[in-house]
């Protein structure tokens, strides 16, 4: 079946990566039923694209980490279905992007590879990984919280001996050899409306303090810093279509991933319990404006 995306490239004319974003959009548009959204025209004549952005899954193509296209989508309250950053894709593929604004054969090949990936991409639902044979550990659906308030902002920290935290505002809830991991209210409040979740890869081995995916708002990208080491055995797929669950409650429906622990006794040394984290959180909240 042919894809019907709404394609939003950053179209950055003064950067090579921005020019590549345009090339990718063109290539996908030519070979599918997709429609390109011009970011410049979108700003002045939003109505022109209203239909398209409502009916089709939105693919945002940023050239670089300045994320102009993502920020535009955030500003216009659009739901992002898929997201590509050209410089990141180049890195993943071990490719260099040249300095000339006219695309050379390398840049065109990169654009082609990314376009093909988008054209082949199954919808997120289709590619959901089945966890055959995995034991399922039941994590509680509700926790008890201690609350700290500053102005209109409410910060919850879950209580309980099974909760562990790191100073990077991520938590782990440990049951036996399994841990569920997520971010705390401090992250979610600082980012405000979260609009995109990049999950970690199932099966990946993560070190303590290693990266467990990213979450992103119009304001910033937050790298999830794993409190524990282990293998990723589950990801909260719901967050891909509803990242706002992290804003609602980052401990319950907004959890990020589950890990099979490999060295928890060792990890524990560098983790905080509820009480220590709550004190750190209070200090952080008091010293920054969110």
């Amino acid at each position: 079946m042919s894809k019907r995306y709404a394609l939003l490239p950053c179209n950055g004319l003064d950067k090579t990566a921005g020019c590549i974003s345009r090339e990718i959009a063109l290539k996908v548009e030519e070979r599918s039923e997709s429609e390109i959204i011009c970011p410049v025209f979108f700003r002045v004549a939003e109505a022109k694209y209203r239909q398209s952005t409502q009916d089709r899954p939105l693919v945002v193509i940023d050239g670089c980490q300045t994320r102009c296209a993502s920020k535009l989508a955030a500003e216009k309250n659009l739901k992002i279905a898929e997201k590509i950053t050209v410089t990141e894709e180049a890195k993943k593929r071990g490719q260099q992007i040249g300095a000339s604004l006219r695309l050379g054969s390398n840049e065109l090949a990169l654009a082609e590879a990314i376009a093909q990936q988008l054209l082949a991409e199954e919808s997120k639902k289709e590619k959901e990984v089945k966890r055959a044979g995995e034991e399922v550990v039941a994590f509680p659906e509700k926790y008890e919280y201690e609350i700290y308030t500053k102005d209109k902002f409410i910060f919850r920290v879950p209580k309980g001996e099974q909760f562990f935290f790191n100073e990077n505002d991520c938590w782990a809830y440990v049951i036996g050899h399994r841990a569920r991991v997520g971010v705390t209210d401090f992250v979610q409040q600082s980012l405000s409306d979260i609009m995109f979740f990049t999950p970690p890869t199932i099966g990946a081995e993560v070190e303590q303090f290693g990266e467990l995916g990213n979450i992103e708002s119009g304001k910033a990208v937050f790298e999830i810093v794993s409190p524990v080491s282990g293998k990723v055995v589950a990801v909260n797929d719901e967050l891909v279509s509803s990242p706002e669950r992290i804003n609602d409650n980052p401990y319950e429906k907004g959890w990020i991933a589950e890990l099979e622990l490999t060295n928890f006794e060792n990890d524990r040394e560098l983790l905080l319990d509820f009480k220590s984290y709550f004190n750190i959180l209070k200090r952080k909240v008091d010293s920054f404006h969110v």
Binding site: C64, Q65, T66, N168, N214, A220, V225
Partner: peptide, 13 residues
Amino acid sequence: VFCRACSKTCGPD
């Protein structure tokens, strides 16, 4: 320690 947030705002990496 372990924050890398600013690198994600850096266009030219």
